[in-house]
Computed example of a mutant assay.
Amino acid sequence: MILNFAHRGSLTEAPENTLPAFHKAINNGAKALELDVQLSKDNHLVVCHDYKFFRFNKGVEGQINDYTFEEIKQIDVGKTFGEEFKGVTLPALEEVLEICPADLLLNIEIKNIPVIYEGIEQILLNTLTEYHRLNNLIISSFDHAALKRVQEINSEIPLGMLFYYRILNPWNYAKTSGLNIRSIHPNHVYVDQTFVHECKRNGYSVYPFTVSDMERYEQLLEYGVDGVFSNNPKIFGE
């Protein structure tokens, strides 16, 4: 079974990682969503990829964690995308959980680079527990120490190990990490038949990012990937 993820929601149709983007992804038939979490100054989980506001609102200085969540809700991140999204703000994770059907698989990425958010793992798991979303879930990160802390808190959580650059034998690294890794999430540019074969031979699902070109997508399917992270509704709505 192929399972594709709507990367930051449907980010070609609405501002990424916002409620409109997630609504559109769900309406496009996405069976899985990917989103990113960071912490505000007052330790609220904010759904955002960048640690600064510059791409969304060039008039806002500083980082996500320089602002309280109440202050963040006053910052427009939609107007640069289009007038119809003027006034759209970054959501709290709780807001996203409230609109996601229970059968929708969530991949929540902990954004712990370049800013290290102390305690984000416990806050995340507390929130997921409160909203009964510990099932149908993957927690991923490029910060593998963050994955270790998640596992120490709750060893039953499926973990996804993200890799941006090529490393030698990442499947061996995952196996010897001491982590309960269920899936490997590599940059798609270096994924080939051997990579997929070795990951799967070692018991890992493979979900490359970010795949929006149909020809490349079909090639990856031939290699045997279990799905991809995509910005293309034709792919993530499949």
Rank of each mutant, 00 (worst) to 15 (best):
F53E: 00
E109I: 05
S140N: 12
I72F: 00
G9D: 04
D192S: 06
I64A: 00
L221E: 05
V211P: 01
A174G: 09
S177Q: 13
T12Q: 08
Q151W: 11
K24Q: 11
F229Y: 13
L11P: 02
L39M: 10
P233E: 07
C100M: 12
R216N: 14
D36W: 02
I157L: 09
A25R: 07
I108R: 01
K111V: 00
P170N: 09
V88A: 11
E215G: 04
T89S: 04
S177D: 14
K111H: 01
N43A: 06
K148V: 05
S183H: 06
K41R: 14
P101Q: 11
I167Y: 11
L168V: 12
N202L: 08
F81W: 08
L179R: 11
H144V: 10
S230W: 01
V150N: 07
N154P: 11
L159M: 11
V47Q: 02
L162A: 09
N43C: 07
Y164F: 13
F209C: 05
L90S: 00
L128W: 06
P91S: 07
A25C: 10
T68H: 00
K175M: 09
E70S: 10
Y164N: 15
W171E: 10
F142V: 10
E83K: 15
P186E: 03
N169K: 15
L159Q: 07
E83P: 08
S205Q: 15
A6H: 14
V150T: 12
E238A: 12
Y51P: 01
Y190C: 09
F22S: 06
L45S: 03
E95D: 15
K24S: 14
L11T: 09
H23I: 11
L124F: 10
P20F: 06
I64F: 00
F5R: 05
V115E: 00
F56E: 13
K31P: 06
L105W: 12
G227D: 04
P186G: 02
L124G: 02
R216F: 09
L162K: 07
H49Y: 12
L106R: 02
V191L: 04
K73C: 01
F142Y: 13
E156C: 09
E70C: 08
S140V: 12
I181T: 12
L90K: 00
T127Q: 11
F85W: 08
I72L: 02
M214E: 14
E130T: 15
N28R: 14
P15V: 03
R133H: 15
G224A: 12
P114H: 01
P101F: 08
D103Q: 13
M214H: 12
C48S: 15
E95C: 05
L137Q: 05
I181N: 05
K86W: 06
I64H: 01
D226C: 07
L137D: 08
A92Q: 15
P170V: 08
L125P: 13
F209I: 08
